[in-house]
């Protein structure tokens, strides 16, 4: 029993990794069989957003920082790698680390300024900085970002194994790998001494200060680490959709990450992952299936927004907490 509890994540990853070999379909849930490119693409997006939400939770749920700037770092990863590959002709193996480094550096610079204020003001300042990214992306800054249409990825710079619909399963593995890396990094950070300081900052910042630790440095660390994870996610998103467009830089992306985390359960191990997967799946399904629904129900954001508001009132701990409560009741 304890073995099961300890090692089930490995089993889950193995099952997810083998999905491209499963020819069966789940009627009503996915349109095609599990190993069809369309389904794998959707699953890959679900896993990617599960990872992005987990990375964002490092700020929101673990450190108690309400940042509205996470989209900027995702966009830096996506646009950075896209520009380096498409405009500068670099190979992916160079462009990806460079884009992640870019995202990390910008996160350090912005974090250093924004963390001078706390609470709601911090939220507003990060939102304002992220808006610069959205403006630059949408206005075709320096002729690099392609404006409103975005910048399609020049696939000739990629390894041939990552190009084309038949290779969707490899991109799915890339997403899965990203998710696993994020889960490990967040788990390691949270269970380290640094992670305990972050939890302390979330619960009572003054107390951490009184203990002789510097809250600013620890918050900056969390901000930069989350920025790096977001930039890596941006690179994966670029590969998945073969391009970058201004939507990925907009505040809507950050808001949806926030919705995912709150729906799933902030500060829990698997909550943000669940929230991210569920949100991405619902967003996709409601968009593609909802044609027959009446009125506002056709808009996925209306449905998700209402669910989110209800979640804040009626299950503030998110899905993860719900499951725990149900378990406790049965035991």
């Amino acid at each position: 029993m304890t073995y099961l509890r300890r090692y089930w994540p490995f089993g889950a990853v193995a099952v997810l990794a083998l999905l491209p070999y499963a020819g069966v379909g789940i009627p009503g849930v996915f349109d095609g069989p599990l190993n069809s490119p369309g389904t794998l693409q959707l699953l890959a997006l679900c896993l990617l957003f599960g990872g992005l939400a987990t990375g964002y939770d490092l700020l929101f749920g673990r450190t108690g920082l309400l940042s509205f700037g996470q989209a900027l770092f995702v966009a830096l990863g996506a646009y950075g790698a896209d520009v380096l590959i498409t405009k500068a002709g670099l190979p992916l193996a160079l462009a990806a680390p460079a884009a992640i480094l870019l995202g990390t550096t910008v996160a350090a610079a912005i974090g250093a300024i924004a963390l001078r204020v706390t609470g709601i003001a911090f939220a507003m300042v990060t939102l304002a900085f992220a808006q610069v990214g959205a403006i630059l992306a949408a206005r075709d800054a320096w002729g690099l970002t392609g404006g409103d249409e975005g910048l399609a990825l020049d696939v000739s710079g990629l390894p041939s194994g990552l190009v084309g619909v038949v290779n969707t399963y490899k991109l799915y593995w890339v997403s899965l790998a990203y998710l696993v890396i994020v889960m490990i990094v967040v788990r390691r950070t949270v269970s380290s001494p640094t992670g305990r300081v972050l939890a302390g900052l979330r619960d009572d910042e003054r107390r951490v200060g009184v203990l002789g630790l510097n809250p600013y440095a620890f918050k900056l660390f969390a901000f930069v680490l989350a920025g790096a994870l977001a930039a890596a996610g941006g690179v994966v998103h670029l590969l998945l959709v073969q391009g970058a467009d201004p939507k990925i830089a907009g505040s809507e992306l950050t808001l949806s990450l926030l919705v995912m985390v709150v729906l799933g359960g902030p500060g829990t191990r698997y909550g943000p992952l669940l929230g991210g997967v569920l949100y991405t799946y619902l967003d996709y399904r409601l968009t593609h299936v909802a044609g027959g629904l009446p009125g506002p129900l056709k808009q996925p954001l209306f449905v998700l927004g209402v669910i989110f508001i209800l979640a804040v009132y009626f299950f503030p701990g998110g899905i993860a907490q719900l499951r725990l409560r149900a378990l406790r009741r049965t035991l």
Binding site: E252, V259, G295, P296, L297, K298, Q299, L301, F302, I309
Partner: peptide
């Protein structure tokens, strides 16, 4: 929680007007 509710309202409200 208040911020979160207004975030949800802004998402749902815009979608409502779009519909």
């Amino acid at each position: 929680a208040q911020v979160l509710v207004t975030v949800g309202l802004s998402l749902a409200g815009v979608a409502l007007f779009q519909a």
